[in-house]
Nucleic acid binder design. Structure first.
Length: 265
DNA sequence: AACCACGGCAACCGCCAATAT
DNA sequence: CATATTGGCGGTTGCCGTGGT
């Protein structure tokens, strides 16, 4: 990730010189990677000094966990991952690290950024003023649409949704979980076990031109159908109708172990 | 071509809990 | 037990790229 050296801000350091801040350079990344490869993680303040980095331990830890760690996934979140985030957030709220534990290779920072930039933007566009309205939007628009994306992804690949997300399939690993909540099933099913599995998902995703994608069913689709209202933007009748439309898809997901009851109106 | 506005995201900040001394 | 240090987390900031005018 070579980039021009920015005019670094520095903060005073008691002893030798100053602490660097701002974007990491390639040289710093290399130092950190090599040090951790040899000595492992932990004791971040000591690590920073020992590695010759003029950074705080916190900064080193953050850089490693959010960017340099080998198993970090880059690129757009898949529809499956977006679906999982919506569901887990409805359960746990802004517990980003907890949510991230169920999305292998994704960091809490990435999920947090996704939520703030994509999901909350959509909420604004839908003029969802209340948390209840937000949940409703997630239930009635985002979830079905994401499920549709999942379907498309699977069918494009010549797979049924069952095999696409089947824990016993070759690309998905089923593993025991520390708790038995309704949500662990999904996270298990979306855990990718090998780089090839991940690459495969990426290829399919790019081919279908999907990724961060909730724009298509935003304000225009609602207002065009005459559904949008300033104060009570979605009627119960519409909720029922939309739900019926997606019922089959939801049933299919339930069959493969995804619990979507929390999103039913 | 220049400027501006906006979105995405890496990095920082502050707080708190856990651990070490 | 008290204090200091470290690590982890969620919230926030600010830089940079991009698209629009």
């Amino acid at each position: 990730m070579a980039m021009p050296m920015p005019p670094f801000k520095t903060v005073p350091m008691e002893e030798d010189g100053e602490l660097r801040r701002g974007p990491w350079t390639l040289e710093e990344d290399t130092l950190l990677i090599h040090y951790i490869t040899r000595h492992g993680e932990g004791r971040w303040n000591l690590l920073a000094k020992s590695a010759g980095l003029k950074r705080t331990g916190k900064s080193c830890r953050l850089r490693w966990l959010n960017y340099l760690k080998p198993d970090i996934k880059r690129g757009n979140l898949t529809p499956q991952e977006q679906l999982l985030i919506l569901e887990l957030h409805s359960k746990w709220g802004n517990r980003w690290s907890k949510i991230a534990q169920h999305l292998p290779g994704r960091t809490d920072n990435e999920i947090k950024n996704y939520w703030r930039t994509r999901v909350q933007k959509q909420a604004r566009q839908l003029n969802v003023g209340s948390s209840e309205g937000f949940v409703e939007a997630a239930r009635c628009f985002w979830m079905p649409k994401l499920l549709q994306k999942v379907e498309q992804t699977c069918s494009f690949n010549g797979m049924s949704s069952q095999s696409c997300m089947d824990p016993s399939s070759s690309t998905i690993k089923n593993h025991s979980s520390e708790n038995s909540s309704d949500f662990t099933n999904i996270s298990e099913q979306t855990e990718l076990t090998s780089p090839s599995a991940y690459d495969h998902t990426q290829i399919v995703e790019e081919s279908c031109n999907i990724g961060y994608d909730m724009e298509g069913f935003a304000l225009e689709s609602i207002s065009a159908a005459g559904f949008y209202e300033e104060t009570n933007w979605i009627s119960s009748e519409m909720t029922d109708a939309l739900w019926n439309i997606d019922e089959m898809m939801f049933r299919e997901l339930e069959e493969i172990g995804i619990n979507i009851h929390n999103f039913k109106p």
